[in-house]
Nucleic acid binder design. Structure first.
Lengths: 334, 334
DNA sequence: TATGTTAGGGTTATCGGTAACTCTAGCGAA
DNA sequence: TTCGCTAGAGTTACCGATAACCCTAACATA
């Protein structure tokens, strides 16, 4: 591989001169500059960013750690983050923890070893606190995305899960539903807790008593949802509507219902947090509380870059409002 | 940031000893090993992978450059690649060219500067040949994924676009369609060319004359599809079925038809290459020629890792068979 | 007793680049 | 003529880690 020393030799100058040409620093005569540039071109020189980072103590790399790369919410977020990072002159290193704490830990280790300049972090749960702590100890700026972690202080970009959930459940109530189930994510994830809060608030505001048998907890990925959702069908008094805490939970729920011979929304209504199909599907079916995923990414990167520039600035939290899209999966009763 | 020198000082030994403990090389007494390990833990030591890579001339990073991170085909592929890379002890650096040659070039530059050990590369088109050439010149192993490039020799993992397209069009013919349109991707992408071939083969095999007005060319992303698909509706004799060369083209086509008041499949049938909805959608609608995207990723990484280990091995091409999923978007005539 | 071997470690150079400083010729001002 | 300045370079040390080699005490062997 060609180095600046090879260039220097051929150009009859020192490596420092080549470095100065590359970085446009110092005083270099026009003639020398052109000669060096020509030789760099000719020899197909590619700078070694590791050597550079080693001495500059800066990589110009940001890391984005998400929990599910197959979820459109996170891919949109990633695209937003990528676009923003490029705008700021950073590269984006994407990592996917798959909602798995071990994978997450391994990735954090890699991220630290890579000496990235900052991390966009969607933690798998409250136990991620220790990992965030380590990043902070190493003085690596962190912006939490989508999920917060109790006891951890840092910049965050969050959706308003509580208000969103409440609005969705109130929508169901307005559609005439009173027996409304919640298929929630695991409670060690902040979004699940907030969505549960919103659910409870809505019921209470409308004088509907809380029935614990209508509240289920699954994981945020595909696997277990069906067996869990099936419990709703075994209840003496079935719910008329289900609110799922994310898109994949809704999908699993609907599949379960269909396997049991129920039609959605004729027999039972289903709605969820996060967009599910739009953009992917011919005729969007699901009533959702959509989040501006792309903006999650861009805003988080903006915060992160500012934080890198100024580590002492006040901590900020940006709260993004979700939007209700009323579609066909919810039936209006009577 | 803590270095091995800091550890060494505290442990009363040389940096080399610390390095040996970390890498399990050389001879170190059990007592010293434990002492060093304890101090590393205590001081929160994180190795600097750049310094390491610099001297070892190896990064243990693979790069995956795809053209559209919002397309489920590529996210599945990415997950496969990630899993396989982790299995082999590599990290995966994900980059998204967005079907944009400039972005692609910039990413290739970054990839080279990062000195990754290998590249999984889905090129934006035939013009990518020059970029691949540069990678090869720098002796960076490349595996092409999904798309080949004329004149470029390297390992490849491809889908059988020709056979898949032919089988799909023959399926349409069996369903009674004879006037079948092709909404194709740009012809500077190899998959478009192969799908066009398959389309022609199928027609010819069944004695159906080729009508050039039924062959359209759009880009593989969302933007222009609608205006292009609209042309089909202006024809004197409309097609009864459309075969779209990828999932997003199909989506744009269907949207266009619906905006014009046509129903799919009652008024016109639509099918496409690549899975569109499965996994994302309640009730998959589209008849598709699905590709094993996840396997594209794992196999490509396997090839790449083998290539890294043995640069002189014979070049290999793996061809993956697509599978027809017949669903509701295609109507059986008569 | 002399020599060889080995465990357990240390020295030094190097990877590719950059910061901070130094050097020198040529020119202008005093 | 002498001093000082400046344009246009070059020197040196260092970033953090590792390879390759070197060193020494202790013990075994001839």
């Amino acid at each position: 591989m060609v180095t600046i020393y090879d260039i220097a030799k051929r150009a009859n100058c020192s490596a420092m001169t080549v470095s100065k040409v590359i970085n446009n620093t110092g005083r270099i005569s026009e003639a020398t500059r052109k000669r060096v540039l020509a030789i760099m071109e000719e020899m197909n020189y590619i700078p070694n960013s590791m050597a550079r980072s080693l001495v500059l103590n800066e990589t110009k790399i940001l890391s984005l750690l998400i929990t599910d790369i197959t979820n459109p919410f996170y891919t949109s977020l990633a695209r937003g983050a990528e676009d923003a990072a490029l705008r700021h002159g950073y590269k984006l290193l994407l990592a996917n923890s798959d909602e798995n704490a071990d994978k997450e830990k391994a990735y954090i280790e890699t991220i630290m070893a890579t000496r990235v300049d900052g991390v966009l972090y969607s933690p798998t749960g409250d136990e991620s606190a220790a990992l965030i702590e380590r990043l902070t100890q190493l003085d690596i700026p962190v912006v939490l995305v989508d999920r917060e972690v109790p006891g951890v202080e840092c910049d965050m970009v969050l959706g308003d899960s509580r208000a969103g959930a409440r609005a969705m459940v109130e929508h169901l109530i307005e559609c005439g539903h009173r027996r409304i189930a919640l298929v929630n994510g695991p409670l060690h994830v902040s979004t699940s807790r907030r969505r549960l809060e919103g659910y409870k608030e809505a019921l209470e505001a409308h004088g509907i008593p809380l029935d614990p048998s209508l509240i289920l907890e699954a994981d945020y990925q595909h696997a277990l949802t069906s067996t869990i959702a099936a419990r709703l069908l075994e209840l003496e008094e079935r719910p008329t509507a289900v609110f799922a805490a994310n898109n994949f939970l809704a999908l699993g729920t609907i599949r379960t219902f269909q396997q049991q011979g129920l039609r959605v929304p004729e027999d039972i209504s289903v709605s969820c947090f996060d967009e599910l199909e739009a953009g992917f599907v011919v005729d969007p079916f699901m009533t959702v509380m959509a989040q501006p995923a792309y903006e999650f990414g861009t805003i988080a990167v903006d915060l992160l870059v500012e934080r890198i520039r100024n580590r002492d600035a006040a901590r900020r939290t940006v709260m993004l409002k979700p939007v209700l899209h009323s579609r066909r999966s919810v039936k209006r009763l009577r």
